[in-house]
């Protein structure tokens, strides 16, 4: 009898604590961030850094885990979305997740089901191997127009952001390359080192070391503004090819998201912590070292950016013939 009584008391105490916790203001316990891309990658590292700073701001630990698999991060995204919309689960995402609706049959949501917090991203750059004679983006475009398909261009697999950038660059400039797909940016750059391809389109961050060592010659960035890396200024392709402005920029957007139906006060708390974390020295320094353009956008501003990316990327993968759901049926407007 005594034992039963003790048990009841213990249970009551636990229940009491649980209720007390529920009453408490957010955040009362650990937060889990589910990164849908692999450990060590661009999204993973960025999210870990920002979460480290936000944990200081919020005063609770933030556990970062990786749930990968599926297409366009669908498995991890579905996992994060299946958890309660209480702010204790966040999703570490990137621009590629805007195509999930088109890529997989069992995810029919658009970017609107999330509220986004964007850390930033690194702009895409068109580079050639140093043995090629082209010194400017115009030389390259002229050569590619004169002999269509003669230059082999490496980038990530079909539908990746760098491939979509390459497609848009071809469309805007009228150049035609022989696209060779790789399973990621690093293998495509490595292929340029071995001479398998002569041109690569990846981000400045990914190419930085090779550019600085003179193993790749950067011709132009695919964003409206020039980009400076270790004292070397890479001009914008928009300067001499104004038609690009119609199809570009399609820029990397790494960050995290919370379910859009989470309570407003929770979103506000996270927004505050995010703003403070973006201003911290750690994040600023991280952005500089990784050659990021830091964003810091959240709320409506971030949603608009993601909707734009969703249009460009979803329609691009659909036109590549690799989607399963028509973007029009999901209500995604053409870019």
């Amino acid at each position: 009898m005594k034992r039963v009584f003790a048990l009841v008391v213990a249970l009551a105490l636990v229940a009491g604590f649980a209720f007390a916790a529920a009453e408490q203001e957010f955040p009362a316990r650990d937060i889990t961030t589910i990164v849908v891309w692999g450990a060590g990658g661009g999204t993973d590292t960025s999210v870990r850094v920002i979460m480290g700073e936000m944990a200081n701001e919020l005063g609770v630990p933030i556990n970062v885990i990786n749930v990968t698999g599926g297409s366009a991060g669908s498995v991890g995204m579905a996992e994060a979305y299946s958890r309660d919309a209480d702010g204790y689960t966040l999703a570490g995402l990137s621009e590629s997740n805007t195509t999930t609706g088109v890529m997989v049959a069992d995810w029919d949501n658009t970017v609107d089901v999330w509220d986004w917090f964007l850390v930033g991203g690194s702009p895409d750059v068109v580079s050639v191997t140093p043995d090629l004679p082209y010194e400017t983006i115009d030389d390259l475009v002229a050569a590619a127009q004169a002999a269509p398909g003669s230059i082999k261009a490496g980038a990530g697999g079909a539908g990746s952001i760098h491939h979509v950038n390459l497609l848009a660059f071809e469309q805007g400039s009228g150049a035609d390359f022989d696209f060779i797909p790789y399973d990621g940016s690093a293998p495509s750059q490595n292929a340029a080192m071995t001479g398998e391809v002569q041109l690569v389109v990846t981000s400045v961050a990914e190419q930085a070391e090779l550019i600085r060592a003179g193993r790749l010659r950067p011709l132009a960035v695919l964003v409206p503004d020039a980009f400076t890396i270790s004292g070397q200024t890479i001009p914008s392709a928009f300067d001499t090819i104004p038609a690009l402005a119609e199809v570009l920029p399609i820029q990397q957007a790494i960050g995290f998201a919370i379910r859009a139906d989470a309570p407003e006060e929770v979103k506000a708390k996270i927004g505050e912590a995010f703003e403070a974390a973006m201003q911290s020295d750690t994040v600023q320094q991280f952005g500089e070292e990784r050659f990021y353009v830091l964003s810091g956008a959240y709320g409506d501003e971030a949603k608009e950016i993601m909707q734009g990316l969703q249009s460009s990327l979803s329609w691009a993968v659909w036109e590549q013939g690799i989607g399963v759901d028509d973007p029009a049926s999901l209500g995604i407007p053409r870019p």
Binding site: T68, G69, G70, S71, S74, V75, M103, V104, A105, D106, W107, G157, A158, G159, P181, Y182, D183, V317, Q320, I322, V324
Partner: peptide, 23 residues
């Protein structure tokens, strides 16, 4: 799973868990 080059689904039977290939 989806092949890494063209990203075309092979033998996935519409199951997105198989999209990433067998772990």
């Amino acid at each position: 799973g989806r092949d890494a080059l063209q990203f075309y689904p092979r033998f996935t039977f519409g199951n997105s868990q198989l999209d990433g290939g067998l772990e």
